[in-house]
Nucleic acid binder design. Structure first.
Lengths: 104, 104
DNA sequence: TGATTATATAATTGATTAATTATATATTTA
DNA sequence: TAAATATATAATTAATCAATTATATAATCA
């Protein structure tokens, strides 16, 4: 019971960050590569990479390399207590459709 | 949309802490005073007080003073995206029933 | 009123962590 | 194979934050 609370707290720490929550909101719409995420958000590439690594380590996102590009997608089946958070994220459709896609 | 994500991240930071999550799990069972919480968890009184203050400032818990004692209760209606978290907290019934209640 | 109990606040300390800068690895293409 | 592009990792720095210690406030009771 104590372990469960500890695990929940550790998982929630991952979501309790503006940058990672933005990445999650984007990936909820569709899978994206790192360069898409940096273009949409304006964050640096190393910064995006580090946050994605943490999310992947916790099983929140899945990774798949295709050629030069590494695509990330959201794994919504991972933690049931995260569902209501995913559900209440704002839509990122507009930001994604504004993608120039100059990298991939 | 950016503001919403920022607000969500700030709110989630409150829950992303083992100590506060434990307090929330306890208050989900029933309202408790500060001395109950310190007795059940073994945390220090100033520590409990500080965490409760943060939770109250965010509207996560309600406060009511009755005599010497200040009772806290969980405000589950506050943030809809926290519902699934509250739902998946482990039961604290056993710990609460083991209360000696030597303070209040 | 003075002592006791319950709770809150303030100051300090140590640990955690996000972002940046610099560099390394991996894949593709000329 | 060399150059270019995409991504990852490492090291550093600055900021945030939890817990402790010490002290203050508030309510009750003798």
């Amino acid at each position: 019971m104590d372990d469960h609370i500890y695990d929940m707290a550790e998982s929630l720490k991952l979501l309790a960050d503006k940058t990672r929550l933005t990445i999650i909101a984007l990936l909820k719409e569709q899978e994206l590569c790192v360069c898409d995420i940096t273009e949409i958000t304006g964050m640096s590439q190393p910064n995006a990479s580090q946050h994605l690594r943490k999310l992947k380590a916790a099983g929140v996102v899945n990774e798949s390399r295709r050629g030069q590009w590494v695509y990330y997608s959201l794994n919504t089946t991972n933690k049931p207590y995260m569902e209501c958070i995913y559900e209440h994220l704002p839509s990122m459709k507009e930001k994604i459709s504004a993608l120039k896609g100059s990298c991939c």
